[in-house]
Design a protein around this nucleic acid. Structure first.
Length: 931
DNA sequence: GGACTGCATGGGA
DNA sequence: ATCCCATGCAGTC
């Protein structure tokens, strides 16, 4: 390498001063160094006297008169680097341009497709398009003192903790000196460097620097080879060629994807020397900022555009590897404009991150990518970290705690207290938060990008990149779904599934292969707006599917060994004679047709495919459903509330469309499709508490409801514990009629539902009785003693024990009539429940419901219920086989139907107690025979 | 019991 | 093999 290149390299270094110290003969000099009085140009032996270009250090190269003149006239390289390597031809005019030194940086720009263009051509040819790929660049102000000041003050002011020590983990720096080449120096980093605090890394850095121009000037493999072939420029061929080419290919690939790279680009260097080209020019803005300014303020000098082009990221693969691509900022002008607000401010994009479920969750902790945190956030040495003031895109300021946790000999950086901000910006998992810095204030700015917009833009990008509009990863094979719009039936919009396809493409590019869990979740939760249940409903076994049953923790899972097919979503119901059927909507006429239960339909189905009902095999045939029936049939979407009726008590559940694991009502009940907000559930629980003393079966029914409610409450996400049910499934879940549908069951009903319920109930009761009786003998005495004391001391009325459970005279009466004379039991029955009732449990496995395996509350409730029930049984058996007295006394109407306790699940805003003839009831008969 | 905190774990790059 | 980081979870308040 020629000495001229060496001098250039030294100039490229941010450590010109240090380099000078190490190599006085390299004639690198700066105004701040008086070790050498020679001209910066090693080719020149004259003594320096004039300032030249600006160095990274903020100082100016000292040049002799001759060199300074050549520099000012733009002839420096032509004069002094004639024989140096790095001469390239402009792709446009062919003019030879030297690309091998800091002096020439402003003279050319790298082309996206490879090669270079001289600035004259660049200014003529380039149209500044919205290119989110512009890198955030270190703003090297012509006022280094101001920046130096800012470099410390900005963070320290933000942190409010005085001067910030040098970052504790400059891994970007120390691990490989890459930053010296490419990483934008943070102002404080420059300070540090200026202060000569990194001498230890100097030799390595210097070595890196020596090969940097070779990489740098050969902006593309093509040009590199071209240079070799056409120019016979052997000067740049060295042992590193293969690696260089490989590296450069990576660069090109990165560029092709329009990736923004938060590392220094040569434009940064250009900016530094720009001042030297014409020191009278206004302070150069960072290229990115220039573009931004150019966007905001028309009429910016076209030269700026060319300079901006010169800011194209030229990133070394090693530099790229420092920060994972998924964190590279991809700001659009609009986003910048949104963030900035103030056109006089300069936005420096730092990084971005897609919010994970944890990030967006209520915990309020945003995990920061380590490298980003260490590169762009103030250094912290203590886990407690620092408070960090961050401004959101609306200008609102937030203070987060920037801290870290020790983790595997490393650190895990988090921003704490982000929940208000996240909520304020209405962000959720999958959305992207962006971090940038506002210059010159140094203020951290947090922007965001919603997942939908991100997906669209990314998708657009990718489409344009591939040029064929076809997903590169083959996800398009999902194909457009023929399903029509989402409506009350729960059908999924065609557009939505198409969006899914596009989202998957985006995810594959944006997220890479990272975090499948996140990807799936995002798709489902955010993009698809597809509930777990809906997704389940879409799946059909393959035509020749033979399910294999896997039992996990007592739950049977049907496994699709072959990939399930996407089928036509249908609605299962009971006809008026109690047979299970399914309803399907014609793709064309949208009429609903009744089909046999086990029919599996293709994803696109029309009336013409109705081979089971020839009279309705045409769209012209009338729909055999009244609007009212249809309304009852269709699962209600966007429910506000679910009412669960128990005798005269109506319990309201607020719901969301979330599938509930272990829901005994599976896919049919409204509750099952919903979660219950804790507030309302508590209210409901209170109601249940109020009525729980009605009797054993009533209580059990309540427990069933509440157990489910607990499930609802406890589960914000579906689990795999819910077996997949499909047509023909005969489990307790599936044999139940849809909520609010089907005939009511008499006590003497011997249908599958009742039989199963009775059997399970009886088994449960017997086991509970047996277990409890063993313990009762020992504990009852003590309990009675204590209760007796309590009764004597407090309240002679047993019902008072229920506390708030005295809301109605009926209840009081019920309590007194069916009262359990054990107040502790009453108390326990009002205790919170943790457990769940899963009607899918196998009776032979019900001992898993032992208190030991239960959290306690639920089992106590069950025990109470069983005891009461058995006591009632004994009581009633002596009085004839009749319904429990409690129900006689409580039920205000239709007592016979509600005898034994009924769970009626009404739909949204439906009053099943009044006019819902098809309200679903589970009748647990008091005369249930043991099985 | 729920919220919060800090660390541990394990999948994935 | 190593590191990152999303998330789980136990301890504490």
């Amino acid at each position: 390498m020629s000495s001229s290149s060496c001098s250039s390299l030294a100039a490229t270094s941010t450590t010109a001063t240090a380099t000078n110290n190490n190599n006085n003969t390299s004639c690198c000099s700066s105004s701040s160094t008086v070790l050498s009085r020679k001209c910066f140009n090693s080719e020149c032996t004259d003594f320096k006297s004039r300032k030249g270009w600006r160095l990274r250090s903020g100082d100016f190269a000292d040049l002799c008169d001759r060199c300074a003149s050549a520099h000012e006239e733009g002839r420096f390289c032509e004069t002094f680097h004639v024989n140096a390597s790095g001469w390239r031809g402009c792709e446009s005019c062919g003019k030879r341009v030297h690309c091998g030194c800091i002096v020439s940086l402003q003279a050319f720009t790298l082309l996206d497709a490879g090669g270079i263009a001289c600035m004259a051509c660049a200014r003529k040819s380039f149209v500044l398009t919205s290119n989110p790929a512009w890198p955030p660049l270190f703003y090297h102000s012509p006022f280094p003192e101001r920046l130096k000041d800012l470099s410390v003050k900005s963070w320290s002011q933000l942190a409010g903790s005085g001067p910030v020590p040098w970052r504790q983990a400059p891994s970007l720096f120390n691990s490989s000196a890459t930053q010296s080449e490419l990483q934008p120096r943070m102002p404080y980093e420059v300070d540090r460097l200026n202060a000569g605090e990194r001498f230890s890394a100097l030799s390595l850095e210097k070595r890196k620097l020596e090969d940097f121009p070779e990489r740098f000037i050969n902006g593309s493999p093509r040009n590199h080879l071209q240079d070799i072939v056409e120019n016979g420029n052997a000067g740049i061929i060295d042992d590193e060629q293969p690696q260089m080419l490989s590296s450069l290919r990576e660069d090109i690939s990165a560029q092709q994807f329009g990736i923004t790279i938060p590392y220094a680009s040569p434009s940064e260097l250009k900016d530094q020397i720009e001042g030297s080209v014409n020191p009278l020019l206004p302070a150069p803005l960072p290229p990115f900022a220039k573009r931004f300014h150019g966007t905001l303020h028309k009429g910016v000098d076209s030269s700026v555009d060319g300079q901006i082009r010169n800011g194209r990221p030229r990133i070394d693969a090693r530099g790229k590897s420092q920060l994972l691509p998924r964190y590279w900022p991809r700001f659009t002008d609009e986003e910048l404009q949104q963030i900035s607000g103030n056109p006089n401010s300069v936005i420096k994009p730092l990084f971005e991150k897609m919010l994970s479920a944890s990030d967006a969750g209520r915990i309020g902790r945003l995990v920061l990518p380590k490298k980003c945190a260490e590169a762009y956030f103030p250094p912290i040495s203590q886990p407690e970290g620092l408070p960090l003031r961050v401004q959101d895109s609306k200008g609102k300021e937030w203070i987060f705690q920037f801290r870290f946790w020790p983790n595997n000999n490393s650190r895990m950086y988090v921003l704490e207290g982000v929940t208000p901000c996240i909520q304020n910006m209405q962000l959720q998992a999958g959305d992207i938060v962006t971090f940038s810095r506002l210059e010159p204030e140094g203020k951290l700015v947090m922007g965001f990008r919603k997942a939908s917009s991100a997906s669209l833009s990314d998708q657009d990008n990718e489409t344009s990149q591939t040029g064929d509009g076809v997903s590169a990863n083959g996800d398009a094979e999902l194909g457009p779904s023929p399903w029509s719009k989402v409506d009350k039936s729960g059908y999924i919009a065609k557009e939505v599934l198409e969006a899914k396809s596009s989202i998957k493409k985006r995810k594959s590019s944006t997220l890479g292969s990272k975090s499948k869990r996140l990807r799936i979740e995002n798709e489902d939760m955010i993009e698809l707006k597809l509930t777990w249940e809906e997704a389940q409903g879409l799946l059909r076994p393959a035509p020749d599917h033979v399910p294999s049953i896997v039992v996990i923790e007592g739950f049977e899972f049907e496994e699709y060994e072959d990939a399930p097919v996407l089928g036509k979503p249908t609605i299962f119901a009971m006809d008026n004679v109690g047979h299970k059927i399914q309803w399907v909507q014609c793709e064309d006429c949208l009429k609903w047709r009744k089909l046999p239960l086990n029919v599996l339909l293709p994803s696109k189905w029309t009336c013409s495919g109705n081979t089971w009902d020839s009279e309705r095999s045409s769209c012209s045939a009338a729909q055999d459903l009244t609007p009212e029936q249809l309304e009852n049939l269709l699962p209600s979407r966007n429910l506000d509330a679910v009412y669960v009726y128990f005798n005269d008590f109506k319990m309201e559940f607020l719901v969301q469309n979330v599938m509930i694991p272990n829901c005994p009502f599976c896919t049919w009940c409204y509750v099952c499709e919903s979660t219950v907000t804790s507030k309302r559930l508590k209210a409901a629980k209170k109601d249940i508490d109020n009525v729980e003393a009605l009797g054993g079966l009533d209580t059990l029914a309540n427990l069933a409801i509440l157990g489910e409610g607990e499930t609802l409450l406890a589960s914000s996400q579906a689990t795999t514990k819910h077996p997949r049910h499909r047509p023909g499934c005969s489990c307790i879940v599936c044999i139940q009629p849809p909520s609010g549908k089907g005939p009511k069951h008499k006590q003497t009903c011997t249908c599958n539902v009742c039989q199963t319920v009775k059997r399970r109930f009886k088994t449960l009761m017997m086991k509970r009785e047996k277990k409890q009786s063993e313990k009762e003998a020992e504990t009852t005495r003590k309990q009675q003693e204590s209760s007796a004391e309590k009764l004597l001391d407090d309240d002679p009325s047993p019902s008072s024990n229920a506390g708030s459970a005295s809301g109605s005279p009926n209840k009081k009466k019920a309590v007194s009539e069916v009262s359990d004379d054990d107040p502790n039991r009453m108390k326990s029955s009002t205790s919170p429940f943790k457990g769940q009732i899963d009607l899918n449990i196998q009776p032979e496995r019900e001992d898993e419901f032992s208190p030991g395996s239960d959290s306690g509350g639920m089992m106590r409730m069950l025990q109470d219920a069983s005891e009461r029930y058995l006591r009632m049984q004994r009581f009633l058996s002596s009085d004839g086989d009749s319904i429990p007295a409690s129900n006689h006394s409580v039920s205000s109407g239709g007592a016979d139907e509600k005898a034994g306790g009924g769970i009626m699940l009404g739909g949204s805003h439906q009053d099943a107690s009044e006019d819902h003839p098809s309200a679903f009831s589970i009748i647990t008969s008091a005369s249930t025979p043991a099985t």
